[in-house]
Amino acid sequence: TEEYEYTDEQQAREAAREWREKGYTVTIEEHNGRWRVKTG
């Protein structure tokens, strides 16, 4: 599992979409105004 943090929701969603296209399972969670994208 890798985790990436973004301050911008749009960036987080874009990144998540790219990971999904590569076949990863992706979770996005908002935490204190930051967006965490977890792949695994």
Results as ranks from 00 to 15, higher is better:
Q11M: 11
G33V: 00
T7V: 11
Y4V: 08
A12M: 03
G23S: 02
R20Q: 15
T25D: 12
E21Q: 06
E9V: 08
Y6N: 01
E3L: 11
A16G: 06
I28P: 00
R36Y: 15
E18F: 11
R34V: 09
T1G: 13
E21T: 05
A12R: 00
T25S: 11
H31R: 10
Y6I: 02
V37N: 01
N32F: 05
G33P: 01
G23P: 00
W35V: 02
K22N: 06
H31L: 13
W35D: 00
Y24D: 02
E9M: 07
E14N: 11
E30R: 07
W19Q: 05
R13W: 06
R34N: 08
E21K: 08
Y24C: 06
G23V: 00
V37T: 02
Y4G: 06
Y6G: 03
Y4I: 08
E9T: 02
H31F: 12
E2H: 15
V37W: 01
E9W: 08
A16V: 08
E2S: 13
A16T: 04
T7Y: 12
D8I: 05
Y6P: 01
E18D: 11
T7R: 08
K22G: 04
T7P: 12
T7D: 15
E5R: 04
A15M: 07
A12E: 00
K22D: 04
E18V: 11
R20N: 08
E2Q: 15
E3Q: 10
R17A: 12
N32K: 08
T27K: 07
V26S: 03
G33I: 00
R34Q: 08
A15E: 04
D8P: 01
G23E: 02
E9K: 05
T25P: 08
Q11P: 03
G33A: 02
E29A: 07
G23W: 02
T39Q: 06
A12L: 02
D8K: 04
Y24G: 03
R17F: 06
I28F: 04
H31Q: 09
E18I: 14
Y24V: 07
R34M: 11
W19R: 05
E14D: 12
Q10D: 12
R13V: 10
T1F: 15
E18M: 12
W19E: 03
Y4T: 08
R13K: 11
K38V: 15
A12G: 02
E30N: 10
E3H: 10
K38G: 05
Y6F: 14
Y4L: 09
G23D: 03
Y6L: 02
E2M: 14
E5Y: 15
R34Y: 09
A12Y: 01
Y24A: 04
T27H: 09
K38Y: 07
E5H: 09
T39L: 15
A15H: 07
W35R: 00
E14Y: 03
E3F: 15
G40I: 15
E5T: 09
E5A: 06
E2K: 13
R36S: 08
V37M: 03
D8Y: 06
A16F: 06
R17K: 13
N32W: 03
Y6Q: 01
E18G: 09
E21G: 04
R34A: 08
K22C: 08
E5V: 11
Q10H: 12
T7A: 14
R13E: 11
E9H: 06
R34D: 03
Y6K: 01
